[in-house]
């Protein structure tokens, strides 16, 4: 990153900065702006991100492995994976249905309202999301007496955490698939139907192949959010170590108990998840970029 400023000079073909008369000040604009971007991103993003890895491995692999053998850690890891196992398929099915219903019906009353409603979890605070679930399924909530009578525990238990995770990761698939569906249009699907394909066949053979990259990206984001959610899950889980603790909750708990190395061992796993998500996103973008570039 430091070498950046040096290598700026060679590539100044006038194509990018073809201002009629470049004064000295204007020549400086580009290196100054690039330096600002690197500095700003360094302070806010890069240095904090790098710190996660340095801290996690500073104590050597031994300490790292010690955390990994803790029961509480293994339980948190399993619960984190469980959240994704449940939330990803459910929100994928919903997202596909919602995107298809909205994209294939251009005019119905409340279409914009429906799209905004799907976006709601993006703008509602995760804590408020958790609170709503507590007010619905908690002891004093709407369904509280009914659940208690049947001995079903949702709040301070895994089902509540699943509901909170479903809430916060609800929009991603719908949001990623909707624009793709709108862009490809209904013509191919209609052609398949005229040729005698059933609705199910049309979906599997025509619709799904053309939306697969957008869908995959939506699934990736859903997965990242489901595994990484903190606020909403913290509200409903009660944060019981070894019972209702996901990895993000484990990170906070360990940090508060001054087990910094344990916190960073768990944090580096979650950071690894973030890196996988971002690399996959970059690959998907290259892929779709190439696809559309070749197709048109």
């Amino acid at each position: 990153m430091v070498t950046k400023t040096k290598s700026i000079k060679p590539d100044t073909p006038p194509a990018t900065t073809a201002a009629p008369e470049s004064t000295g000040w204007q020549k400086l604009t580009k290196p100054l702006l690039i330096a600002f971007v690197i500095l700003y991103l360094g302070l806010v993003l890069f240095i904090p991100a790098l710190n996660v890895f340095v801290q996690a491995f500073s104590g050597g692999v031994g300490l790292f492995l010690k955390t990994f053998s803790q029961r509480a850690f293994l339980n948190a890891l399993w619960l984190t994976i469980l959240m994704a196992i449940i939330a990803v398929p459910l929100n994928t099915v919903f997202g596909l249905c919602a995107a298809w219903a909205i994209a294939r019906n251009k005019q119905f009353p409340g279409r914009t309202l429906l799209i905004s409603l799907i976006d709601l979890p993006f703008s509602v605070s995760p804590v408020v999301a958790g609170l709503m679930i507590v007010l619905l399924y908690g002891r004093n909530g709407w369904f509280g007496p009914l659940l208690e009578a049947n001995d079903i525990k949702i709040i301070f238990a895994v089902p509540g955490m699943v509901l909170a995770t479903l809430f916060v990761s609800l929009p991603f698939v719908a949001r990623e698939v909707l624009p793709v569906l709108e862009e490809i249009g209904p013509e191919q699907e209609e052609a398949a139907k005229t040729l005698g394909a059933s609705e199910w066949q049309t979906f599997w053979r025509v619709t799904l192949p053309s939306i697969r990259w957008g869908l995959l990206y939506g699934v990736l984001l859903t997965n990242a959010r489901a595994m990484g959610e903190f606020g909403a899950v913290a509200v409903v889980s009660g944060n019981i170590t070894g019972k209702t603790q996901t990895l993000p909750l484990f990170v906070e708990e360990a940090y508060k108990q001054y087990h910094t190395e344990a916190a960073y061992s768990a944090a580096v796993l979650l950071a690894g998840l973030a890196i996988v998500t971002m690399v996959a996103k970059a690959l998907l973008e290259r892929r779709t970029g190439l696809k559309t570039g070749a197709g048109h």
């Binding site: 903190f230 990170v251 944090a267 979650l270 950071a271 973030a274 998500t277 971002m278």
Partner: peptide, 26 residues
């Protein structure tokens, strides 16, 4: 255009992908 531009570009999404507990910790 500058070296490692693509990497910088993809790292912009880090706050979307990194769990907030990890962000707070670091």
């Amino acid at each position: 255009e500058f070296p490692s531009k693509r990497i910088v570009d993809s790292l912009i999404d880090l706050p979307f992908a990194l769990p907030t507990a990890v962000a707070g910790l670091t």
